[in-house]
């Protein structure tokens, strides 16, 4: 049965951990379909990214390395994926869902006239076909779906698939020649707004501390939420309410319209728990809620709830953790 191509994601040569979950999906699926999987890394000056992908059971680590691929532009990346899929025989192209892969994969799928499923959270095999589970309606519906065609594109939710385990056999690395003809040049990359250094990204962190409406301003957010996150070596996040009121930047928003996270520990600080927020955190291993409103919906899904004013409870918690 068909082979799988995993698209790796990295940030300036730093592999995104979610890629290991996409590889986990590939390993699991290849085992049931008697296929193999390759992993493709696209970019320029990628440091040890390709090397770091060798221990995960792929038939090959494919590298497309060229200066114009340094910018995360969809036209160029989709063009590379299209060429690689045409040169080799794949039945599935998969990546962990992120804003990067959601920009690129649908474009590559359409170039190859392939259908696509986003946010896959499960896969099983029946007879000759694969059956997938994916979430819809802001996480309120779990759908069982099939996707017709010899070539299928997928993004998977990293939280739903166990990361692949490193082995001792190293996959060979192959540099992919770029396709003939001029590279697409439909857009120009203007850079990225520098993010706050020193804290991990919420989608990658083991601990995420998030602040909500109870936080009154940016200084308090940094002191309370940032302080607690730093005490735990974790990432910070925010509810939509705080983003809308300008207290936190958009990139911190967690929820259906922001980031989907699944850390070992999620601490919701002064978050009431709107459905769209809960949709982004419900795969977390342990959820803690601190809120002075005892009836806040967040308590209905929290493993541990503390009814308290965050302005007194959070500094106390931070102090105890530092001891």
């Amino acid at each position: 049965m068909a082979n799988i191509l995993v698209i790796a994601e990295h940030d300036a040569g730093q592999l995104k951990l979610a890629t290991l979950s996409a590889l986990g999906f590939a390993a699991q699926t290849a085992a049931t379909t008697h296929g193999v999987y390759d992993v493709l890394v696209i970019g320029a000056q990628m440091g040890t990214t390709a090397e770091s992908l060798r221990a995960y059971g792929a038939r090959q680590v494919l590298v497309a390395d060229a200066a114009p691929l340094q910018s995360p532009l969809a036209d160029r990346h989709a063009w590379v994926i299209e060429a690689v899929v045409k040169q080799r025989d794949y039945g599935i192209v998969v990546a962990a869902a992120s804003t990067f892969t959601k920009d690129i994969l649908p474009r590559a799928a359409a170039l190859l006239d392939a259908g696509m499923l986003s946010d896959v959270v499960g896969v099983s095999r029946t007879d000759d076909d694969l059956v997938f589970k994916r979430v819809m309606y802001a996480g309120n519906v779990l759908a069982t779906v099939t996707l017709a065609g010899d070539l299928k594109f997928l993004t998977i939710r990293a939280a739903a698939f166990a990361p692949v385990v490193a082995g001792t056999t190293l996959s060979p690395v192959e540099q992919i020649p770029l396709p003939a003809g001029p590279m697409p040049d439909l857009a120009e990359y203007g850079g990225r707004e520098a993010k706050v250094a020193g804290r991990p990204d919420a989608t990658e962190a083991r601990v995420v501390v998030s602040g909500g409406r109870a936080i009154k301003n940016a200084e308090d957010f940094e002191r309370l939420v940032g302080g607690l996150a730093d005490a735990l070596g974790g990432a910070v996040g925010s509810s939509r309410a705080l983003v809308d009121s300008g207290i936190t930047p958009n990139s911190l928003q967690i929820g259906q319209t922001g980031k989907i996270v699944a850390p070992d520990l999620y601490l919701a600080v002064g978050i009431s728990g709107a459905i769209q927020h809960l949709a982004g955190i419900k795969d977390s291993k342990v959820i803690v809620a601190i809120n002075k409103d005892a009836d806040a919906p967040i308590f209905e899904i929290a493993d541990y709830g503390l009814v308290a004013d965050v302005y007194t409870a959070v500094p106390e918690l931070t102090a105890q953790l530092k001891q």
Binding site: E188, G190, R192, K195
Partner: peptide
């Protein structure tokens, strides 16, 4: 709007 923050593209 990307996971890593705001990106600029023309």
């Amino acid at each position: 709007e990307t996971d890593a923050g705001l990106e600029s593209i023309t």
